[in-house]
């Protein structure tokens, strides 16, 4: 990778810079202020997240990436209201978040569709909770099913659907409540590569056409750079913001950009943030010590 001549990831073309200028003028949808989360364990307290600050603007697409143990999932669960912060605040349109609510839709990696409800009934769930009567909830649900292209499957149960279809239903179910922000916790992590690419395209399409802000957790660098306006890079132990990267790849995105210089430059930079090249001494227990255990038959001298 070092051989490759790449521009500085901070270099933005005029259109991209202009877009970021305008993006920052938009109203603030979600604000995270000095967020800290500590867990108490038997051996004392562990800081999972430390002093996180973040401002998400309306209709912005923010991805979060970081090594395992950086508290990505804890962060999104706090934003959803499923867990409470030790200190600090989360504001949605200026109002503090204290508990889960339909104005913050959530999509989980494990789909979490209700297995006893059909596709249609799953999407109707939140609508009925919000006080709609069955008739209008059903009409709304049908529209969403059409939108995600599952009209043939509206009366199927989740276990009759593929992973990608399930996740489309889960997205529709969250969006049907017309949330202000869609929180997605590694939603495509369990899907195979082709399905994942398709789902990324679907999501971009939805994001373009619906008034929605997206906060998206992933451990896949390509996915983060491809989808996000900005990427929040966390580091582990404790989970802290390492950098907030403005992705210089022009919008609208398309798969052809995967090999563009801006794309690769951003990817390389984040890669270096997450996996710093200088290995520290404390990483030693992560390495295999092959020399001692191998008994090589000399018929094949070297695999290379």
């Amino acid at each position: 990778m070092t051989d490759l001549e790449l521009p500085d990831y901070r270099h933005q073309s005029d259109t991209v810079r202009d877009r970021f200028e305008r993006l920052k003028q938009r109203p603030v949808t979600m604000e995270v202020k000095n967020l800290t989360k500590e867990f108490s364990t038997r051996t004392g307290s562990v800081t999972a997240l430390k002093d996180i600050n973040l401002t998400i603007h309306k209709r912005e697409f923010v991805c979060v990436i970081g090594p395992s143990g950086c508290g990505k999932s804890t962060l999104i669960r706090i934003l959803a209201g499923l867990e409470s912060a030790t200190s600090g605040q989360v504001l949605l349109n200026g109002k503090e978040v204290t508990k889960p609510g339909p104005e913050r839709g959530m999509v989980f990696q494990g789909y979490t569709l209700f297995p006893w409800l059909t596709v249609k009934e799953n999407i109707m769930f939140g609508l009925i909770e919000s006080g709609q009567d069955r008739g209008s909830a059903e009409a709304d649900a049908r529209q969403w099913i059409d939108l995600i292209g599952l009209a043939r499957f509206e009366n199927h149960y989740p276990n009759q659907l593929s992973g990608g279809m399930k996740q489309r239903v889960a997205i529709a179910r969250a969006l049907a409540n017309q949330p202000k922000i869609l929180l997605m916790d590694e939603p495509f992590g369990a899907l195979d590569a082709q399905t994942r690419a398709k789902m990324q395209a679907y999501l971009m399409e939805i994001w373009k056409n619906i008034d929605i802000t997206i906060f998206f957790i992933t451990h896949d660098l390509d996915e983060a750079v491809y989808l996000a306006d900005r990427i929040l890079v966390l580091k582990a132990h404790p989970g802290e913001v390492q950098e907030i990267v403005e992705v210089p790849v022009p919008q609208p995105r398309h798969p052809g950009q995967f090999l563009s210089p801006e794309f690769l430059a951003t990817k390389r930079h984040i890669e270096q943030l997450i996996h710093p090249p200088a290995a520290h001494g404390d990483d030693d227990d992560d390495k295999l010590n092959m020399v001692r255990m191998v008994n090589v038959n000399d018929d094949v001298g070297s695999v290379f």
Binding site: G81, L82, P100, M106, F108, T112, F114, G126, N177, L183
Partner: peptide, 18 residues
């Protein structure tokens, strides 16, 4: 029961009763 189902319900606006 998978606790994620309850969490999904909560993020869809379900009350304790629901």
């Amino acid at each position: 029961l998978d606790p994620a189902l309850l969490e999904a319900g909560q993020t869809l606006g379900a009350s304790n009763r629901s």
